[in-house]
Design a protein around this nucleic acid. Structure first.
Length: 226
DNA sequence: AGCTGATCATTG
DNA sequence: CAATGATCAGCT
């Protein structure tokens, strides 16, 4: 009842494994893996991601490194509706609010995270029971020059605001493809940042998220969904 | 406290 | 009905 998959030895093998899941329901996948499936995601928001990590042989744990370190590939599940539209923004990484001197887009954590991603779409219409949700066709993505430029632009804008002490003025609307939003256990959690005068203060931790139109574009490009 | 995995749920 | 602020679970 615990057949943790061995790590994939190559990108090709990983992609094959992921694409072999296409058409399967989460119930079927969980059953084959001997994993209990929750009624819903309300108290298990990351469950689908963890299930996919398990069956694809990702290294477990919450270490700050790619899911497949030897391949340099990050795994992201992507909830979509029946029209192929993402239902949620995609969390990328926690946003550093301090220690940003000298950090550039080229060396940023966001860029590193998104350098190579295995996207696994999951048909997740709200009226579909969790066990009946169906995995779509996975694909591996590396940002094109154009996509990299879009991300760089937003990252720079948001990072500039953080550096200038304007983190609390950042809205979700900032950025075309990337946004900064709270990322914490609850609204009481605080982390240190710097205000406009360079004085430290405590604020809600933030994370970078990919906006829906961006991930939707990726789906269309790679799967030719319409 | 801060990272991993994200979606929930209320608001505009 | 999309946007965005709030939240849940597990591990280090």
């Amino acid at each position: 009842m615990q057949n943790k998959t061995t790590p994939p030895s190559s990108q090709e093998q990983l992609l094959q494994r992921a694409q072999a899941l296409a058409g399967m329901t989460l119930g079927e996948i969980a059953e084959e893996s001997g994993i209990d499936i929750p009624e819903n995601l309300t108290r298990n928001k990351g469950w689908i991601g963890l299930l996919l990590e398990h069956v694809l042989g990702a290294s477990a744990g919450s270490r700050p490194e790619p899911d497949f370190p030897h391949l340099g590939i990050e795994l992201k599940s992507l909830p979509i509706n029946s029209l192929g539209k993402p239902l949620e923004t995609t969390f990328v990484s926690v946003a550093p609010l301090t220690g940003l001197v000298g950090v550039t887009w080229q060396t940023s954590y966001v860029r590193k995270k998104l350098a190579k991603v295995l996207w696994v779409p999951v048909l997740s219409d709200k009226n579909l029971a969790l066990k009946d949700r169906q995995v779509g066709t996975a694909f591996i993505w590396t940002p094109s020059e154009e996509e990299d430029n879009l991300l760089a632009l937003d990252w720079q804008e948001l990072t500039d605001m953080i550096v200038l002490g304007n983190v609390e003025n950042i809205q979700g609307k900032h950025g075309q493809v990337l946004q900064l939003r709270p990322k914490a256990a609850n609204s009481q959690v605080k982390t240190q940042a710097f205000d406009k005068n360079g004085k430290p203060f405590l604020t809600l931790p933030r994370g970078f998220y990919l906006k829906i139109p961006f991930t939707q574009m990726l789906l269309h490009k790679h799967l030719r969904i319409d």
